[in-house]
Amino acid sequence: MNSDQRPPILTVEDVSKAFGGLKAVNHANLEVAEGSITGLIGPNGAGKTTLFNIISGFIKPDSGHIAFQGERIDGIPPHRVFHRGLVRTFQIPREFGGMTVLENLMLVPKDQEGEHLWAAWFLPWRVSRQEDENFTKAEEVLRFLNLHQLRDEYALNLSGGQKKLLELGRTLMCNPKMILLDEPAAGVNRTLMRGIVNDIKRLRQDLGITFFVIEHDMDIVALLCDRLIVMSEGSKLAEGTPEEVRADERVLEAYLGGQVR
């Protein structure tokens, strides 16, 4: 697939963020093409997760712009980023441990009328209809992710890999346009991971969702991504297809340098 022809869905322009004296993200410039599965790789401390946090609105950048589908999203709170169709997962899964797997998913859909008190009190039939819809949708997602047998289990009791799947499942509950995945393969066993890779590809194919993925496992990256962005010391170092990036000397150096340090 040649994603170069497509317009960027996400543009990060000259974004910087410092914590104290540490420049976590330093004049980062990058673009993610619509409909692509773009990987974000780089040594530890390159600022990948910080960049995700900035894009999704959890951290305000010190400077720079971020545009999603041509509209600026930097500086707006996370829930409004979400409402534009840009959703994320967390590196360490953040499930709602005290709720069942099913309701972890049912929490997500937007525009639930039952989230307004008056509707919960006075319009039960409308809430009921929506709950039924969301229930069906959540069951669908659970079947898709092979988690259906755990539907009524507390999310807290899931294994690390199952929690990762649940995170992915949450992003599917809201018809997103783009999903930021933070290390979807970490802690997930190999067979399951192959499943996830196929799932992601299927989602892109069927629903046209764009993926932007932080991943350390190069095998997974090669299997999954059609484009890679390499970050080092807070800014973009290189970009290209997995093969191109693999051949790039600077990338190797950044990783080795990162390891020595």
Binding site: F58, P78, F82, V87, R94, E95, G97, M99, L107
Partner: peptide, 17 residues
């Protein structure tokens, strides 16, 4: 449900819109 989400994990609730 949103309230219970908040008591479990505020950031994840924000990330769920």
């Amino acid at each position: 449900r949103v309230l219970r989400g908040l008591s479990d994990d505020e950031e994840a609730t924000a990330a769920s819109g």
